[in-house]
């Protein structure tokens, strides 16, 4: 029953390959208030781009995945965000997951109106 938690670097590849995703940034755990870059500057430790936590209520069969992404302005940022959540869920099936995705940057050429 108890599955090992999915590998974060595998999920990184899954998220990175979603259309419109330009970057995957270190996820910021809720307990961590210090800025990621500042922390890694002090400790030399890079935060993982995708954070996988055991689910609170059923640690063996559920997981929580957190990440922050950059989106190309050629795509609609909210759609890309939902696509990432769907891709993570599809990849981790049959594990029950909740996904936390934050768009931290929108970049690239801006589309003209209409």
């Amino acid at each position: 029953m108890n599955q090992p938690l999915p590998a974060a670097d595998e999920l990184y590849e899954v998220i990175r390959s979603v259309d419109g995703v330009t970057a995957v940034y270190p996820a910021r755990p809720a307990w961590q208030n210090i800025a990621g870059a500042a922390l890694s500057a002090v400790t030399g430790v890079q935060l993982p781009p995708v954070l996988v936590l055991p689910g609170a209520e059923a640690p063996g069969t559920t997981a929580e995945v957190r990440t922050r992404i950059g989106v190309s302005s050629a795509h609609r940022a909210p759609d890309v965000c939902r696509d990432v959540a769907a891709a993570v869920r599809r990849h981790l099936d049959p594990l029950t997951v909740t996904v936390n995705v934050q768009v931290a940057a929108i970049s690239g050429p801006l589309p003209l109106p209409r």
Partner: peptide, 15 residues
Amino acid sequence: RPEHPGDTLSETEGA
């Protein structure tokens, strides 16, 4: 708006 209930999707104000 998340597609799947329980998911938390967001954008930063800075973005």
